[in-house]
Design a protein around this nucleic acid. Structure first.
Lengths: 204, 204
DNA sequence: CTGTTAGATTAACACTGTTAAGTAGGTTTT
DNA sequence: AAAACCTACTTAACAGTGTTAATCTAACAG
């Protein structure tokens, strides 16, 4: 019924319209539970029209996620601009920002960082180089590097330490998203514990 | 009356046969890529026969995972039996065992601990209480409790600290499984870093 | 021989992502 | 103005999914 009614309405913003509709549906119902037909119904177009603008479902997802993770980079960049003084404090704030971001965008975090295996999203089509995720990770690397140079952190391999930090914050974020029914202690306390425990483990 | 027993045994055999076939397929090709029809073909029965023994696909998965995680518990129990002396060392060994287990059974780890959300496996049908996963977690709780009593660990809430530890080891395990193409540093070095960083962060 | 029952099957439903082919509407060319 | 072309979109279909209802078959009990 929507097809005829829609005709007079918009035309060229269709790509963005698809993106917006899919983004909201993915975030609300989860990637796996949203079909192409459901997206199409939402925007009042035929399902196949989506394929004129996106290669396939994972492509659609990838575009949305890059968009979403752009926000994380903004947040992180703002932290870096604000306080260049203490790498330890920058790191702490960066870790919290990362976790908060994940918990605020659970479905986007899920599809990009928790379950890329199943969705086969991390193919050669979507290189890691230059991606939003990488840029966020590089932030950690910079802080660790500075912290070691200043002698605030125990010496070690910067890359190894950075990835270990990433593992820690990913761990708590992923657990909270994937296991919403698990009897976690107070969430804020748990995040605090992970962040402080990690930093304590780094200090010299 | 021997006939009834034989039938009972045969029924049990088929159940196990399904379980074995599904387990191997899930582990090799991934849960999402294995259809009920594929499992049926493997055991040379009609697809619907599986439904006589298992409620649905997630039920099948759940049974397999409990079975698999039983092995983790065995490993962990062996550690506990072996060295009751140092809680710090027990914890270290437990963490490594956990990570190693995950990396050795990546698909089982994935479906139970990384992506239970999508599969909707952690419903009320499958309570956490008494599950293999819980028993493994309880091991961590015991070591942390002992470590604090002995004054080896910084004082704190045992549950919070335990969950933070779990988050850390889950993080590195999940990342390595979900992002096989990520340019990780040497895996062993990364695991070492996570474990030692975490323990360092706990010590008083 | 009849009735019952457990175990397995066939057919079907309502979905999924995706592709090939076809069709209106407007623009350009002849 | 008519014919050709092109873009944007749609319809129909394919091959697959998990799952259910109805059906068949063989072995049992009375």
């Amino acid at each position: 019924m929507g097809i005829a009614e829609r005709r007079e309405r918009e035309k060229h913003n269709l790509r963005q319209e698809i993106l917006d509709a899919a983004s909201e549906l993915f975030a609300r119902e989860g990637y796996a539970n949203v079909s192409m037909r459901k997206i199409a119904e939402q925007i009042e177009y035929s399902p196949t029209t989506i394929y004129l603008y996106f290669k396939d479902k994972t492509d659609l997802l990838k575009q949305i996620c890059e968009e979403t993770f752009g926000k994380l980079i903004e947040t992180v960049a703002a932290i870096e601009r604000a306080g260049v003084g203490e790498p330890l404090d920058c790191l702490r704030k960066g870790m919290r920002a990362y976790i908060d971001f994940g918990l605020r965008h659970p479905y986007h975090y899920e599809v990009t960082l928790i379950t890329p295996l199943a969705g086969a999203i991390n193919q050669e089509d979507y290189p890691y180089e230059g991606s939003a995720g990488q840029q966020a990770f590089e932030y950690i690397v910079r802080q660790v590097g500075r912290g070691m140079e200043l002698g605030q952190f125990r010496p070690g391999d910067v890359a190894t330490v950075s990835q270990a930090i990433w593992a820690a914050i990913h761990g708590v974020t992923a657990l909270m998203i994937s296991h919403p029914d698990f009897p976690f202690v107070d969430r804020e306390a748990l995040i605090e514990q992970v962040v402080e425990m990690t930093i304590k483990g780094l200090q010299s």
